[in-house]
Amino acid sequence: MRGSTARSRRGIARAAVATLTAALVVAGTAGCDEKGSTGAGGSKSTPKPAPTPAWNTRPASIASLGDSITRGFNACSPLSDCPEASWATGTKVDSLAGRLLPSPAAHSWNYAKTGARMSDLPGQLTKALPHRPELVTVLMGANDACRADVADMTSPAQYRAEFEVAMKELRRTLPKTQVYVASVPDLKRLWAEGRADPLGKQVWKLARICPSMLKESDAVDTASEARRGQVEQRVAAYNAVLKDVCAKDRLCRYDGAVNDFRFTEAELSQWDWFHPSKEGQRALAAMAYRKVTERSPAA
């Protein structure tokens, strides 16, 4: 009799545990339905990230920032800016603005300045922001390396800080504006190409164009080669900065093709054999157009 009673109690206990367990499971499931799904261990699932904004391959307006290259210096006449020949906004060449915009003169602005360095980029951007451009182009860094001496070159850390300041201000004011960042040209390549022209070398000397790279242009001694190597390395460091900072922005495209481009005599100004000629400006425009209109650019 007692054994039968004990077995009965154990059966009742097991049934109670099973019922309680089932109730807890149902309650837990109901709680998930009301408060959001949970993963293993009861933690809430991570919300899906916001979708990456689609890159617009046909922006309706452009603001261009940079230095003498973007101002078209020496492209039309000696020692003069010629923004009409600028790769970015020019009307005398097949510029980026001319390729993209139905009315380039009304919807593109060139705030580049001859001699500008990366420290000038935030100020140029401040002038461009009121236009609310859909695309901003940046080509800046040659003057940071082209100093009187290699010791005067902008450090990569300072170059990065100044570029980041400009990008943060752009994103604070215009979060949906796209950015095309051109790499700094290969200054050593420009030296190698231009030094073959005696007149060009005289212009380099008299106008003191990029002395850190171009002074004593015929010298090939160890010290001169080391100096040019330092400039080349600094340009590479600048381009690494541009690529890295741009990669962190979903609406920024960095273009290493500018540094890779092999400028020839026809693409260099006949007045200084260093700045792009109209042909060189057209080449820069073509590179920019390819990058801006790519659906899915290569990394």
Rank of each mutant, 00 (worst) to 15 (best):
R262M: 10
D260N: 08
A105P: 03
G200D: 05
R282L: 09
L24H: 09
H107A: 08
A148Q: 15
E232Q: 13
Q124E: 08
I62S: 02
L268K: 00
R172D: 15
D152P: 05
S108Y: 04
A54D: 12
A223V: 07
R9M: 12
E294G: 07
Q230M: 07
A22T: 11
R234H: 02
G98Y: 03
A27T: 09
T222L: 13
W204Q: 00
D260R: 09
R234P: 01
A105V: 09
A145L: 04
G3E: 15
A116I: 03
P211I: 04
G90V: 02
S155R: 11
M153K: 02
A13D: 11
K201A: 09
A23R: 10
G229E: 02
Q178D: 04
Q230K: 09
R14A: 14
I62R: 01
L170T: 00
R253H: 01
N74K: 07
V181E: 07
K248F: 04
T38V: 14
V136I: 11
A148I: 06
C32W: 13
R208F: 10
P51N: 01
A23E: 09
G194S: 07
D249F: 00
R282T: 14
L190T: 01
T38S: 11
A6S: 13
L101H: 04
A207Q: 15
A116M: 06
D260P: 01
P47N: 07
I62F: 06
R290F: 07
S217P: 11
K127T: 12
S37N: 11
A145W: 01
T137C: 03
M1S: 13
W55E: 02
A6P: 06
S296N: 14
L214H: 05
G3H: 15
P175H: 08
T46L: 13
I62G: 04
A40T: 13
Q233D: 09
G115T: 06
F261S: 03
S296I: 09
V241L: 00
D120A: 14
L242Y: 01
L214Y: 01
S4T: 15
A166Y: 02
L79H: 12
D67E: 12
E279R: 11
K176C: 05
E279M: 10
G194V: 04
D221R: 00
K113E: 14
T5P: 06
L242H: 04
W191A: 03
A157C: 11
V231N: 01
P156H: 06
Q281T: 06
Q158P: 01
L187P: 00
S296L: 12
T91R: 08
R195H: 07
G194M: 05
P78M: 06
D120S: 14
L170F: 04
G31V: 11
R71G: 00
K92R: 13
F73A: 05
A161H: 12
T89V: 10
V203E: 02
E84V: 08
G72I: 04
T89E: 03
V138E: 06
